[in-house]
Write a protein that binds this DNA or RNA. Structure first.
Length: 862
RNA sequence: GGGCGCUUAGCUCAGUUGGCAAGAGCGCUUCCCUUACAAGGAAGAAGUCGGGGGUUCGAGUCCCUCAGCGCCCACCA
């Protein structure tokens, strides 16, 4: 073994070996209970970022442990075609060459995207491998592959036949830059201060007019009326009259509508059905035909007269000027509101009237809510269930058509002869009317439509494949809270509807990894940390352990280099502990499982008891998805108990010659520590396993189940005694190995003398068993029922020692008094549980003994 | 306009169903190159758990309230 732990070296060789041996395939555990997680599919053209690293570290932790527990564990990898995002990337590439997608044509462009995917799509899978994530690559899927495309068409046809998918002319969110419709959740609202413009629309007959208020004066060319609230006394008499639209010289009516908020602006609203969702509804109620004043590129239409062809922003300024010139601009005031932006390109969204496909969500919502209400699907942490519920209860229909080219083309064909719409799995040859003049819908589906099917489409659905029968429902879903709406909710809705079963029982929600400054990591802020770079420098193992330890309970976690460094040092600790053990027992001499020695010596009993308690605790926490707490416990056990105490203690008998009992205990404990850490540090633990056990993979070894052992109570007294001796030396400026004579008063025989000699510095403590507490000229270390006495002769300043002991006594007395008060409180005795009272009594007894000892000690100092 | 989260050591954060003599990592102080590890060891300092009120035998943990920070949702013309 190399004397130093080198993450790069260790992490380069194992992945291929695991993969070649089929370790990641569920078949590795034939007969095991199935356990499946599907990966939240990353964008095929993207690269791994810190968010993926956290998300996937959690999933691999779950999967690797289940695999070790004997489950047929499947972590199914895949990638998402990410329609708009990928199309934008490829379009940007083309733009560099001065080309647009139109230059290539639809087929040529799609061909280009596939080429791009072939080139860059392998990158993220390489990165997943580099991180050591144990996905079964033989089952890798892509949302645009044949199987998943087939599933998508199947779903579309089924939902259409059921009336849950329909086509309609509605106001949708339009991104003028991407030139496509977006669903409601693809719009990001940002608060901004805009202008509220008041305009007077003069009456068609007679003097005066009505003032309307708008933030978007340029849309006035699409106005079809003015609406007021029916109960608004100011305007009651005006309903039914007609005004003239300024700059357009078109007459429009004043109508009454309940939807108008008479408290807002002037209480009179210009109705522009084609450019505002509320106006669209008002327009429908009053029989207005929508007029499109802004086109799909965000340019003013012919309707805008002399403003036609202007960009909507330029038009706004120009229209205001023209209104002012016409004398109908009443006022312009600041107005805070929020403006929708495209989540892919940040362009201001245009509400736009167009013919789109929708999923009717109302019938899907009931079962999706009920499954959570009944506890069949539970979110961890639970508070995300409210989040899910609140959103689900206020859903509008889902716009699923996108006017882009990269994606699943909508399986609808239109007959040019009779306007028939045919929705089918494959292109029909002829229409019912006999015509063969059919053309397919130009649009593609929302990427999230195919993602929503991921838990089952990846397993072969709609075919009844073995994998589908075995691994559906999945065992759990792990993802960040940022895609609960986009992905989780839709998987639940469609999963329940299409398969009749919940897609998964547990939804494990984690937080987002933030930049060290607490802000969101982003390329534009230049504060993103690349996980692959960290892996190169500190090791993937270190990054993984750090993320797991830092990411508690679904909270966001600011990324800190220090955590990764600490985790790497832990890897080094494992490395060197293993080196030490192997130095004594040789390579490959520890059994892969079991082999817990029945060594009656208290130090062995202690560490085995602690091991069993730790494994039990880690299991409980991991079963409850409390990853960070679980690994805090495992880390503390390994470092602060096994290595700092047991391993140090073991040095004494090993130095004196071979001691099989100690070696067996040491080997079993270290082996189980490696097993506990394998799910988070797969590489280094596998490497160390190859030396320590040298048989099979730790990746497929059995998860530890050490026998439960009682913890010998004296061990804590021993540790207190040793710390006391060490502290005595530190406090008095004595070198750590300065020889000391310590008398031990230990009537019950809790402590073994060589323990103290070993750990209170090798051979530097001469021990003497006392029959009674020593007096004058000694200082006293109180460790429960054990006391240590150190001669002060010529060693220390007695005054300093006295003041140290006095302070200790004073601090302890405060705490003691508090506990005594508690115990003398009748209500506490009456109402507190037995165990708590007993614990408090023990505490008091312990403290009283210590206080007595300290008091005696101070007196002895003279 | 609704909803949620956060505020605990110098910094970044843990603290399950109320029982804490409040923890970790990093940083800091002192000592030590003891043949597993100086990427280390030992010892230590450091917190009125955001303010106020309440419930309770008992509150960092529950309730109310105030303040600050952050996030999400929303057809705020």
């Amino acid at each position: 073994m190399d004397p130093a732990y080198d993450p790069q070296k260790v992490e380069s060789r194992w992945y291929a070996l695991w993969e070649d041996a089929g370790v990641f395939r569920p078949e590795i555990n034939p007969g095991g209970e199935p356990f499946c997680i599907v990966i939240p599919p990353p964008n095929v053209t993207g690269s791994l970022h810190m968010g993926h690293a956290l998300d996937q570290s959690i999933q691999d932790l779950i999967i690797r442990r289940k695999r070790m527990q004997g489950y047929a564990a499947l972590w199914l990898p895949g990638a998402d075609h990410a329609g708009i995002a990928t199309q934008n990337v490829v379009e940007r590439e083309l733009a560099v060459e001065g080309l647009t997608r139109d230059d290539l044509g639809r087929e040529g462009f799609i061909e280009q995207v596939w080429q791009w995917k072939a080139m860059s799509g392998g990158r993220i899978t390489e990165q997943i491998r580099r991180m050591g994530f144990s996905t079964d690559w033989t089952r890798e899927r892509f949302t645009m592959d044949d199987g998943l495309s087939h599933a998508v068409r199947t779903v579309f046809v089924q939902l259409y036949d059921e009336g849950l998918i329909y086509r309609g002319n509605r106001i949708i969110n339009w991104c003028p830059r991407c030139r496509t419709a977006l669903s409601d959740i693809e719009v990001e609202h940002e608060d901004s201060v805009g202008e509220l413009v008041r305009i007077r629309y003069p009456f068609a007959d007679g003097e005066g007019g009505v003032e309307v208020a708008t933030t978007r004066p340029e849309t006035m060319f699409g106005d079809t009326g003015v609406a007021v609230h029916p109960d608004d006394d100011r305007y009651r008499d005006l309903v039914g009259r007609t005004v003239v639209l300024p700059l357009a010289d078109r007459e429009i009516p004043i109508v009454a509508d309940e939807a108008v908020d008479s408290g807002f602006g002037t209480g009179a609203v210009k109705v522009t059905p084609a450019h505002d969702p509320l106006d669209f509804e008002i327009g429908e109620r009053h029989g207005f035909d929508p007029l499109v004043a802004i086109d799909e590129a965000g340019m003013m239409t012919e309707l805008a007269g002399s403003f036609a062809g202007l960009d909507r922003d330029d038009a706004r300024a120009a229209v205001k000027e023209a209104l002012a010139a016409a004398g109908v601009l009443v006022s312009v005031t600041e107005h805070a509101h929020s403006v929708g932006h495209c989540y892919r390109c940040d362009t201001v969204i245009e509400p736009y009237l167009s013919l789109q496909w929708f999923v009717q969500v109302a019938p899907l919502v009931g079962p999706a809510l009920a499954a959570v209400e009944r506890g069949e699907i539970r979110f961890v942490p639970k508070r995300w269930e409210n989040f899910y519920r609140n959103w689900m209860e206020n859903l509008r229909d889902w716009t699923i058509s996108r006017q882009i080219w990269w994606g699943h083309r909508i399986p609808a064909w239109y007959c040019d002869a009779c306007d028939e719409v045919i929705v089918a799995m494959e292109a029909p040859e002829r229409c019912g009317c006999g015509s063969t003049d059919l053309h397919q819908d130009e649009d593609v589906l929302d990427t999230w439509f195919s993602s929503a099917l991921f838990p089952f489409s990846t397993l072969g659905w709609p075919e009844e494949t073995d994998d589908f029968r075995t691994f559906y429902p999945n065992a759990a879903l792990v993802t960040g809270y940022d895609i609960i709406f986009f992905w989780v909710a839709r998987m639940i809705k469609l999963g329940l509807h299409l398969t009749g079963e919940k897609p998964f029982p547990d939804v494990v929600i984690h937080g987002l990894v933030r930049a060290p400054d607490g802000r969101k990591m982003s390329k534009s802020l230049n504060n993103a940390v690349d996980p692959l770079e960290v892996a190169e420098q500190q090791g993937a193992d270190a990054l993984r352990l750090a993320l797991i330890q830092a990411a508690a309970a679904g909270q966001d976690v600011p990324y800190q280099d220090e955590w990764v460094e600490a985790a790497r040092r832990f890897g080094n600790k494992l490395w060197n502990a293993t080196r030490f053990v192997i130095g004594h027992i040789g390579e490959g001499s520890v059994a892969p499982d079991g082999g817990y020695p029945e060594d009656p010596r208290p130090e062995a009993q202690w560490i085995l008891a602690r091991l069993a308690a730790t494994v039990r605790r880690v299991d409980e926490l991991l079963d409850a998805y409390k990853f960070s707490e679980a690994y805090d416990a495992a880390y503390a056990f390994a470092w602060s108990e096994a290595f700092d105490w047991y391993l140090e203690l073991a040095k004494a008998p090993l130095r004196d010659g071979r001691d099989d009992g100690t070696l067996a205990t040491l080997g079993a404990v270290l082996r189980d520590i490696l097993k506990l850490f394998h799910p988070v540090m797969p590489f280094v633990t596998e490497e160390l396993w190859s030396h320590l056990v040298g048989e099979g993979f730790i990746a497929t070894a059995a998860w530890p189940t050490p026998p439960v052992v009682d913890e010998p109570p004296g061990f804590d007294m021993f540790r207190d005694l040793v710390v006391g001796v060490r502290r005595f030396r530190a406090d008095h400026g004595l070198a750590p190995r300065r020889e000391l004579a310590v008398g031990i008063y230990d009537p019950a025989g809790w402590v073994t003398d060589w323990w103290v000699q070993q750990l209170a510095s090798i051979a530097a403590v001469s021990m003497e068993a006392l029959d009674a507490p020593a007096e004058q000229g000694h200082t006293r270390i109180v460790a429960g029922e054990v006391q240590g006495f150190i001669s002060l002769d010529g060693l220390v300043d007695v005054d300093a020692e006295r003041s140290r002991l006095s302070k200790e006594l004073a601090d302890l007395t405060t705490v003691l008094e508090r506990s005594r008060a508690k115990l003398s409180n009748d209500e506490f005795i009456a109402k507190a549980p037995e165990a708590i009272i007993a614990k408090e009594r023990r505490k008091v007894a312990e403290m009283e003994a210590t206080v007595d000892a300290l008091t005696g000690q101070i007196a002895d100092l003279g």
